[in-house]
Amino acid sequence: MMNVERLQRFNWRPVAIGFLLVLLLLMPFNWFMGQYTTLLVFIGLHTMVTVGLCLLLGYTGQVSLGQAAFYGLGAYFSAVLSKTYGVNPWLAMIIGAIATGTFAYVIAYPIFRLKGNYLAMATLGLGIIMYVLFRQMAQYTGGPDGMGGIPQLAIGSFVFDTPFKRYYLVWFFCLSILLLSQNIVNSRTGRALRAIHGSEAASASLGINVAQFKMKIFVLAAVYASLAGSLFVHHLSFVNPQPFGFLGSVMIVVMAVVGGLASIWGAIFGAAMVRILSDELLLRFGELDIVIYGLILMLVMIFTPEGLFVRLKSYYRRWQTGRLGEVEL
């Protein structure tokens, strides 16, 4: 009994994070999980977009159904600037992030006068408008066929020209963003945001500028998505509008919700679950894959509306406090 208690009291968190980091470091090697490198790159990219949405959802309680538009803006800024205008890919990425952030800032003010379902509708509309623009402005974007031959990212003479190298690049960005977000959550701003989620009126009366915090998070989420989009096009060397449509936005929301709305690290979990499900597990079912995907989506939401990751975490907490056997309220 004593041993179990000691196990329970031990802080497993650093161990878990350390384990995760070592795993991340070793995974793309051929002797380990090299054949999954591309999948892991996509998980990293989607984690970046998902974290932004997690912040928005978890710390302001608002949902954006148009997050893929920011992902797409980053992608197209990088693609068009680096391919058509020969701008250095890193510079293109920064310009993309700034432009996307500015765009988000400009629309944030009018859009955040809306809430809940209405905000969801407005962001959905915005997302689809951007998608139509990507598709129709063919003279810049290459239209629905997209554009290929996008140059690779490089540091000096070191070119990120294989999935193996890009894996580390993407996860470097991804982990940096996760850490940054972690800091925000634990900062004064983060506490303010949680207060907003609790009660806007209460936090406003405490002198927190609610509108400004919401806008900050919205802009931050857009910048994350933009960076991910830039990395995405340099990874594929190709861009077309398709990943940035309504279903793209829905996928990001699903990842955020599976990962747990208020959980930064859950974003990795959510992105990984959804991608592994759709890219690996469901392949065995041939054409029935979308049927099963739809079914799983419903079941997960019905039985763990707070997110799978959060549910698992709460089991862990209860184990730690020795209340695993108790009935959940």
Binding site: A120, L261, M301, P305
Partner: peptide
């Protein structure tokens, strides 16, 4: 379920 969960369902 929250608004988002219901939308996803």
């Amino acid at each position: 379920a929250s608004v988002v969960s219901l939308i996803i369902i």
